[in-house]
């Protein structure tokens, strides 16, 4: 806990960051903010100054957003940008429901901070279809019933598209191995393999 630290040497990284932000902003900050900082509403004042502007390309659209450095890419997508097609299944990088593409590679968006993605090309499930025309993988998932509740589905599909692009679809065993980072509690696994096989051919 930052506030316990009287000794400046023990100041946490977080507190240091806030303090420097406050100090750096002194020249242009109204005195009320500085007062607030002194009145132990420090966090609240610091917060206003802690947002960082970043530029991302999401589904082909360049977007400028303000984010706190601690915000994950997943939470940025879901809570700030309304792109809820990317799912949160564990927030630990253990389930794959949040799989997206960053510069074409599959990534668990819960394990990456939004500010790390400055200038990157991000594709989410919302950006996969070509207008009304579904991506072949999306169509194959419907055809082969590679889904039930549908919650892991966007992550499965993003992972499946990457799996095909990576060339890890030479046989069922390989597909299963390279799709094992995407959990499905409904157990749609065999149908997912069938969908991927069809698209890979």
């Amino acid at each position: 806990m930052a506030k316990k630290n009287k000794n400046p040497l023990h100041t946490s990284r977080r507190t240091f960051f806030k303090q420097s932000a406050v100090l750096a902003a002194v020249a242009v900050t109204p005195s009320t903010v500085l007062e607030a900082a002194e009145n132990r509403t420090f966090d609240k004042a610091a917060y206003a100054l802690e947002q960082v502007p970043i530029t991302l390309s999401i589904n082909g659209k360049v977007q400028k957003v303000m984010v706190e450095p601690r915000v994950t890419l997943l939470d940025l997508l879901r809570e700030q940008l309304g792109l809820t097609g990317t799912k949160k299944g564990c927030d630990h990088g253990q389930c794959g429901a949040c799989t997206i593409h960053i510069d074409g590679r599959r990534v668990n968006s819960c394990l990456t901070l939004a500010i790390m993605q400055e200038g990157r090309e991000i594709t989410t499930i919302e950006g996969l279809a070509n207008g009304e025309e579904l991506h072949p993988m999306q169509a194959a998932f419907i055809k082969h019933d590679g889904l039930q509740c549908g919650y892991c589905t966007p992550g499965q599909i993003m992972s499946a598209v990457a799996c095909v692009n990576e060339g890890h679809t030479n046989n069922d065993f390989e597909i299963r191995e390279f799709m094992s980072g995407n959990l499905c509690r409904c157990g749609a696994y065999p149908n997912i393999v069938n969908a991927i096989k069809e698209v890979a051919q």
Binding site: R78, G82, L83, T84, G85, T86, K87, K88, T124, I125, E126, L128, A129, L134, Q138, A139, F141, I142, K143, D145, L147, G150, Y151, T153, P154, I157
Partner: peptide, 21 residues
Amino acid sequence: TDRVDGRDKVTGTAKYTAEIP
């Protein structure tokens, strides 16, 4: 028969509980 909500689920437009704006 294919799922009637299949398209909503594969495009990410299906809104689950925590996703209602």
